[in-house]
Amino acid sequence: MKTNDVILQTVAKIVVFIILTFSVFLFFAGHNNPGGGFIGGLVTAAALVLLALAFDLETIRKVVPVDFRKVMAVGLLIALLTGIGSLVLEVPFLSHTFGHWDLPLLGDTELATATLFDLGVYLAVVGVTMTIILSIGEDH
């Protein structure tokens, strides 16, 4: 059956970028405000699902040519490594720290190791969600 989804496709093309930007914002907001890697990852996944709805799974594979299982593994590995870092430094597992640096353009910026952990969470969430959705949607 051929449906007329011009409107959906056109809107999706624009909205996806807004959603992706918002997810990045959420990700960085998460350190001191509501947000974080988990919700950011879910929003990113939502953007990709919107693409999948408007077009089809083949398009998703072309636009984002990564194996989401690997994304999940990379995310888990990053999160784990930040934890293991504290083993090397001989502080309790999963300890975090932060400091202030003067970065070009951004000025005085707070950098925290918790963000790295959050990045891992972000990737893991995107990976898991997309794996689940793709494996449900794959079969017809």
Partner: peptide, 20 residues
């Protein structure tokens, strides 16, 4: 609750795939 929601989300989707 958040943890539990995540877990139940994962389990439910697994259950769906399996049921299918």
């Amino acid at each position: 609750i958040l943890t539990s929601i995540v877990i139940s989300f994962g389990v439910t989707s697994f259950f769906f795939v399996l049921a299918y």
